[in-house]
Design a protein around this nucleic acid. Structure first.
Lengths: 191, 191
DNA sequence: TTCATTCTGTACTTTGTAGTACACAACTGG
DNA sequence: CCAGTTGTGTACTACAAAGTACAGAATGAA
């Protein structure tokens, strides 16, 4: 019973995600986001609150997307080795070449000192915890497929470390084949 | 034959390093650096140039420190496995607990989108290349110590990935024992 | 058609901070 | 002791960008 919104909030969040990914939190200006999305600043503030609240929305959305995909892939039947390799390989396009050269929004936020005392950090920690939990659950469930003495918890964490390393080094424009080779070498830890 | 400097440039670079590490490039203000170092802004500009030039000096200094240490450790006699493990273990205090929670200045700079088109990126790439080169050279030289088919180049890169992952995840305050466990697990790739 | 309500666009204020002008202080060579 | 040179401190300017006031537009309900 009033004037309706002239924009789709999801579209704006998507535009904002791209700007934040390209510039980082600090250097991304709201003027740039409003220009790219075509809406005016008061509309942005009315819909999402201030800059940090907007970023948090964008980041949570980003996290949910990756977690949803990970849940789907890691729930597939078959050897744990294969589904985890498939999961890691899915990141190759996002951590190599020009497409990957902006890195990962979550990691970029984690390494941004200006976001230290915000909700952002909690969101990132929750995301990392859930991702590792998915890996751990799968490795524990399928531990019979591995050698005696295999440590599913440690291995889940090591995979997280490798994943984080690949997504971080993406900023220097990694080669897709080399990324895949690293994944394959690390997968030999799952025996 | 003129008034001498009233400060040691190295001291100022050290102060600036701490501020940049804590706040990130953007959020670190020159006022904060001058306040912490006790010198005035015109002196800072006269000695180092503008903010980006100062950051580059700080970053190069940081890189040189780590590279120098890596050269020393990796040149030691003994099995390659042992010296590389020792080198990685040396990072544990810097990527765990409160001390490591600011992460690595180089990685923080690499993931900062606002520094994309600067000399900073070249400095980071050179640093990563040299570090990996040190690992590669040592693994190649000692390849006889490993199994047939051991790939020193790939393994050097994988170690870089793990190192980067550990330094990145340091932001969430990792547990030192867990970091060491990951290192030990990854070291099993060197056989 | 009219009213109440909510959204939109322009244009503004405010603030943090990078960078500098300028007068003065500290030193050295002669 | 003087002159020339370089560093220092105060105080300023310039500017970008976050956040907002306000007038007007777009809707649904009566």
């Amino acid at each position: 019973m009033a004037r309706p919104r002239s924009f789709d909030p999801d579209d704006v969040l998507e535009v904002a995600r791209k700007v934040f990914l390209r510039k980082g939190y600090q250097a991304a200006s709201l003027d740039e986001i409003t220009a790219a999305s075509g809406i005016a600043k008061p509309s942005l503030y009315a819909a999402f609150g201030d800059k940090s609240a907007l970023f948090l929305r964008v980041l949570d959305r980003y996290h949910d997307g990756i977690l949803g995909w990970a849940e789907r892939v890691l729930a597939q039947p078959g050897p744990a080795h294969d589904v985890i390799r498939q999961w890691l390989t899915g990141f190759v396009p996002y951590c190599s070449g020009a497409k990957g050269s902006r890195g990962c929004l979550s990691i970029n936020a984690a390494t941004d000192g200006s976001l230290d005392q915000t909700e952002v950090r909690k969101s990132i920690e929750r995301y990392n915890r859930r991702l590792e939990q998915l890996l751990r659950a799968r490795l524990r469930a399928d531990r019979a497929q591995f050698r005696k003495g295999f440590d599913p918890d440690l291995t889940a964490h090591t995979i997280m470390v490798v994943h984080t390393g690949l997504m971080t080094l993406a900023h220097q424009g990694s080669d897709a084949k080399q990324v895949q080779a690293v994944i394959d070498q690390v997968m030999t830890l799952l025996t």
